[in-house]
Design a protein around this nucleic acid. Structure first.
Lengths: 115, 115
DNA sequence: TATCGATATGTATTGCAATGCATATTAAAG
DNA sequence: CTTTAATATGCATTGCAATACATATCGATA
């Protein structure tokens, strides 16, 4: 077999809590964009997903994590918004770090394969 | 944050060739079942997927891998079937090994996270 | 050359998740 | 109070991928 010409490995990781999906790449990106933009609505628009879906994801994350990752801020002259909690930012950071380590690990291991 | 009570990490890996998906967990299982049962049709039935989908997966794998992973065997008193090539078995083995190593790596790294 | 069961492929149907749209609710700020 | 824009939620629609079904093709064997 031609040794891995043009071959590479890709991956996804997910954090689970009580056997329910808590966080994946998409949800982490959503959290990050909520953090920067200040609302679920604008984060959803940036990611070209429906507000409804974004809201549901956020809601699931909050329900499942055992402590809110984001917090709504209703009211105010600009109608309110949503902020990412300290716990949410921790989660983002942990996920990103593990992704990075995994990328390095897999590239290294993939090179060893006789394929 | 309560330190990872009930938390764990899950993952999936894929082998790509020229930026096209070549192999994932499902396709590897399909290959394995083709190997044991001797036909795409019975492998598909075992996995409760449509024959059409199974055939398409096999076809894509063969087209993309740059060397067949399975080979059809038409004719014969039992109408023929499909066998997994040496290259196909190599691929199955490599994928399984990398999955196993990744499982170990991720469990270890996940424990280190302050989450 | 008739038989066999699997491969190969077109077309119609279905199932379900994502989207779109409408609207009620919220609470701080002016 | 009124205004504001975002959250929260019901319901109809849509889009797409998987399924279902029908059928043509293949080639070793008997």
């Amino acid at each position: 077999m031609a040794r891995k010409t043009g071959m590479n490995v890709e991956f996804r990781i997910w954090f689970f809590k009580n056997d329910e999906k808590l966080l994946g790449k998409g949800r982490v990106e959503l959290l990050e964009r909520i953090g920067k933009s200040g609302s679920i609505a604008s984060a959803a628009k940036e990611m070209k997903m429906s507000y409804r879906q974004a809201w549901q994801m956020v809601n699931e994350m909050n329900e499942r994590s055992g402590g809110k990752l984001v917090e709504k801020q209703l009211g105010g002259k600009d109608g309110g918004g949503t902020v990412v909690t300290a716990r949410g930012n921790e989660a983002i950071k942990c996920f990103g770090e593990l992704e990075k380590k995994t990328r390095i690990f897999l590239d290294k291991e993939f090179k060893k394969l006789k394929i």
